[in-house]
Amino acid sequence: MRSRVPRYAALLAALVSASPGLARAQATASSGGATIAVALDAARGLEPRARTEIVAVLDSARLAGLPADALSALASKVVEGINKGAAPDRIARVVHESYSAMRAAQSILGPDVAPGEIAAGAGALRAGLAGRDLQRIKLASRSRPATGALVVATDMINRGVPAADAVAAVVRLAESGADGEALLQLQSDVARDVAAGVAPRSAALERARVLSSRPRTPSSPASAGSPSPAIPQ
């Protein structure tokens, strides 16, 4: 009987694994992104030094207790670099930098984080935000995920808005109770204004002022992308 238990378990596992229902469920569960296993498999073709460094970083990330979505984002960096044809040393460096930023964001944002917050926080830190800026944005977002506010602040910095003003703009909007659509509106309005020649700082602060003073109405996807009139230069 004892020797038959493994056979029985193996048969059961084979039956369950072969089920199309479970395969569908697994596909659904894994649709969130790349896994560490996928990244390690993809890294097999890299030169040994870069591969060793990548494996070490991924292992450290797993042991450090990064949430699953952050691990997935880190693993995705590996496969992104490989599929974009980047040099192995560069991939290893980027993965290392991303991991360091994620660890910093994790310690700043605390254990209560929404999906994507650590990756967004890491991106913000890499773009030049300080740790206290992340804390301000997290606090201003209250019970909502801070992911969107962090991404919009980072986008504005990349468009030339000084970090302090980008943070002030998203904090003002978040504190007014604005939702993700208002944040998107801020991002797209500032992007358009900057492209039209408005000073980035003015664009961010003025757009945040206008949007935060708007009465909040139930969101409708059809109106989410409609641009506001450009602010005067």
């Binding site: 992104e80 974009k84 560069r90 991939i91 980027v94 991106g123 991404v151 910095i157 991002q187």
Partner: peptide
């Protein structure tokens, strides 16, 4: 072009 840019343009694209 209508979405926020990824801050980390790590691999040139």
């Amino acid at each position: 072009p209508q979405s926020p840019r990824a801050p980390e343009d790590d691999f040139g694209r």
